[in-house]
Design a protein around this nucleic acid. Sequence first.
DNA 1: AAAGTTCTTGTCAACTTGTTCAAATATGCT
DNA 2: AGCATATTTGAACAAGTTGACAAGAACTTT
Lengths: 201, 201
Amino acid sequence: MAAEAEFADHGFDGVSVRQIALRADVPVALINYHYGSKEGLYRAIFEMRAPMIIDQRMAGLRLAEMEPDQERKVEMIVKAVLVPNLHMRSTEKNSSYARILAREVADPKSHHRKVIGEFFDPVAYRVTEALHKAMPDRTIEEIHWGYQAMLGVMVYTMADTGRISRLSAGRCDPEDEMTTSTHLVALMKAALLYGRVPKKD
Amino acid sequence: MAAEAEFADHGFDGVSVRQIALRADVPVALINYHYGSKEGLYRAIFEMRAPMIIDQRMAGLRLAEMEPDQERKVEMIVKAVLVPNLHMRSTEKNSSYARILAREVADPKSHHRKVIGEFFDPVAYRVTEALHKAMPDRTIEEIHWGYQAMLGVMVYTMADTGRISRLSAGRCDPEDEMTTSTHLVALMKAALLYGRVPKKD
DNA sequence: AAAGTTCTTGTCAACTTGTTCAAATATGCT
DNA sequence: AGCATATTTGAACAAGTTGACAAGAACTTT
């Protein structure tokens, strides 16, 4: 799908239906015929790609639930959330979708388009549930802020602007899926396990 | 500046100069006269606001450098990075700029990439430097990924899409600056202090 | 007060935008 | 085959886009 690449590069408002049609080498009207509208096309991308990532995350969660050791369990939950997305990002065919997803999650205007909530909220609930079960001593707030943190790190890395590579003089490269995952998982695992807010006396 | 609010809500491509002019109750042509173009206006926002946030971060870093205790030092660095932005977000007048910044940092097609690099890279170097000095046993990669994580969490929270509030049934609210900062600082402090990648044997 | 400069304004032309329409083509079914 | 439905197409549409212009208003400086 050519639309993915265009949306990924310029955002929903940054690209016109004509640009997409041109790139896909089809008449403009075809898009409206098949998807109803520009937004329909946009949604179709999610409807096609979302299940894949969601399934992987769910599968990771099921594995994590079987792990008895707390520390490992948390690590597996973190991995279940981060790894599928980071992997998708480094896959040539899916990298566009990864950037669209990152953009959409970070876009306040996406609230109107809905789509994130529809597709990803259910799995989000599963994650927070699993986290709370793994660390029952945490408050609900701690769990949710922890999840928020995981998502933020993930999205920011998925949307990579080339900044970390520039700042680190090329030593850190988000394209390197293995190293990236290792670092981010280690960081977020520690954040979740050891990041406690000082309780008010 | 009315332009801030519009840009924040709809993004650079999502809003027209006319909408901005209408909201600001000025003729359209005025904007082009003063800022040359739509992009000029956009850039002007950053040039006006960026120094403020940078100064605060630098000041926080200087304070952190004086702290002898390692754990506290890292915490102070984290605070120096996160708190100014989170505070700005919850300030009525500046919340728009915070959302623009969040959007911009996550946008691969930054309209003024040079401005971001120009303004924010120097302070970024200072942060990673300070982190490395506080934790000399870490690899450069660990330091940079840690910084990346901090930024991701911050940006994602600043761009708040209302998701965490929805998922947590209203129990977590990014508008509540105090609680938000407390949680995020605790998380990222732990991530930096205890998040080590398993070294290959 | 006069002249020069800067700022403000309504209007304009050239162009894109997303979407729709009737006509043309392809496909499936009996 | 012939008919009915589905798809594809180029052109057209109304609405909105940006940036530019000349003409006027409001300051500064002489």
